[in-house]
Structure formats: structure tokens, C-alpha cells
């Protein structure tokens, strides 16, 4: 479904990604792990068309995404729930969700809204509230809900557990597991190694802008070198 090959990207001549290759196939949950600054967010920004990679290719369902703009990538069904949530603070929860279907799945807005509210009942309770007044966990739910409104074929989640209390992190992973269980392909980009490996079928570990390890999540969880690689020791 998603095939990334030899992706090179950076900012103003400073390389961040040095040839990343990875795959996500339909219906699977793939974790992309790595410490701060290894290039996880840059990878996501390339995938969703926010920045243009220097070299390499990104094929999504057989179509080359490099060179397409963010709106076309959304239209193709690759939906990115960004780090830092990026919700619209000056608009109501309902309007945030409605905008989730701005480019895609607009005719089924009402049905998808009902579905998002059933996954996140808290959002239904607060639908008239300004999104900027929500708690961190609720804002994360809103960002995911907004992504689901576009009926993603592949959902990329960038650090959904960042800044949440341990209890909320637990809840967030449970919810993500529930969404994935419906057959949606998910690429989970996380620092939270243990929980991500519990959820994912396969995982990639990034280090210094390249894939350092990859394989079934089960195997990586038992791999004694994971922690040292992951921590960069």
C-alpha cells in the first residue's frame, strides 16, 4: 500500500533523512520508532506533502506521491494526524471534525461524524466547545477523529501519546487498537516503544535518519539490541 524507497530529505541543506525505505501493507499496523531528532517527523512531513524530499520515492497504492501537494495526498486517502495535534483552536469541536471531511468523504460527513462520536463519546459531549479549551487528551482524540472523518486508507499518527499522562497514554493506545481492529492500515510513529510494539504487527527503528532495525514487532520486543540501538548507546 505504502512503499517508501531511499527517501532523502532535510531542511536548508542539513540532511535529516538519509535514505529511508519502508513499507506498509493494507490492514496492518506498523510502528516507526526512534528517539527525538532521528527524523520521524520529517518522514511524516514528506509523506503528507508538507515538505518535498530531496530524493527517493513514495508510492501510495501504486501512485507516486513525491511532487503532489498536501491536498492531493489527502484526496488519495493518506491522512496524517500530526505531532502537536494541529487542531483549529478558534473553532468548535464539531467544526474541526467537519473540516476533516473537507477534501475527502464529504458526502458521508454525517455518518462519519456519528462513527467518530461513538469511538470518542467525550467529543460528542463537547462538540459545541472551542477546540482550544479541550484538555490535551481530548485534543488528541479530536485530531484522530478529524483524521477519521476523511475515511483514511492509511492513517499516519505522529506521537499520539506525547504529553499525555500515563493513564491517558494507556487509553489512547486502547482506542488506536480499536480503530486498527476495524481493518484500517495505521503507521504509528512513536517514542513510546513498549506500547507501540504491543500494538503493531511490524516495526521499523530509525536512527540518525536511516532504518537501523526492522522486523516483526514480536521479534523486536525480544531483541536485546533494540534498547541500545533505540537509545543510541
Amino acid at each position: 500500500m505504502l512503499e517508501v524507497r531511499d527517501l532523502v530529505a532535510g531542511y536548508g541543506g542539513v540532511p535529516v533523512l538519509r535514505g529511508v525505505s519502508l513499507d506498509v501493507t493494507a490492514g496492518e499496523v506498523v510502528a516507526v520508532l526512534g528517539a527525538n531528532g532521528v527524523g520521524k517527523t520529517t518522514l511524516n512531513r514528506c509523506l503528507s506533502g508538507l515538505i518535498r524530499p530531496g530524493a527517493g520515492s513514495i508510492r501510495f497504492e501504486g501512485v507516486e506521491l513525491v511532487g503532489q501537494d498536501a491536498a492531493d495526498i489527502v484526496a488519495a486517502g493518506l491522512i496524517h494526524v500530526p505531532e502537536g495535534r494541529r487542531i483549529f483552536p478558534n473553532m468548535s469541536v464539531l467544526e474541526n471534525l467537519e473540516l476533516g471531511s473537507y477534501r475527502r468523504a464529504r458526502p458521508r460527513r454525517a455518518a462519519n461524524l456519528a462513527r467518530v462520536f461513538s469511538i470518542f463519546p467525550r467529543l460528542a459531549e463537547r462538540k459545541r466547545q472551542f477546540a482550544g479549551t479541550l484538555s490535551g487528551g481530548e485534543q488528541q482524540m479530536l485530531a484522530i477523529g478529524r483524521g477519521l472523518m476523511a475515511e483514511p486508507r492509511l492513517l499516519i499518527m505522529d506521537e499520539p501519546s506525547l504529553g499525555l499522562s500515563p493513564l491517558l497514554v494507556e487509553e489512547m493506545f486502547t482506542l488506536i487498537a480499536r480503530i486498527a481492529a476495524e481493518g484500517l492500515a495505521v503507521m504509528l510513529v512513536e517514542q513510546n516503544v513498549v506500547q507501540s510494539l504491543d500494538l503493531a504487527g511490524r516495526a521499523y527503528v530509525l536512527e540518525n535518519g536511516a532504518v537501523a532495525m526492522s522486523g516483526p514487532a514480536e521479534a523486536l520486543r525480544r531483541d536485546p539490541t533494540l534498547m541500545t540501538t533505540y537509545l543510541g548507546l
Binding site: 503528507s48 506533502g49 508538507l50 501537494d69 498536501a70 491536498a71 489527502v74 484526496a75 491522512i79 496524517h80 500530526p82 495535534r85 494541529r86 487542531i87 483549529f88 483552536p89 478558534n90 473553532m91 467544526e95 467537519e98 473540516l99 476533516g100 473537507y102 477534501r103 475527502r104 464529504r106 478529524r146 476523511a150
Partner: peptide
Amino acid sequence: TDTGRAIRAVAKEKTGAALVGVR
């Protein structure tokens, strides 16, 4: 309208707007 919502979205959160497919 959706265009109006997109205008207000872009006003406060450009990246978020781009990620829901707003040009």
C-alpha cells in the same frame, strides 16, 4: 460554508488546514 471554515482554519492553524486537504 466549508470555504468559510477553511478560511478560519487557515487563519489560526495553517499546517492543520493543509493536512485536512485545504489548499
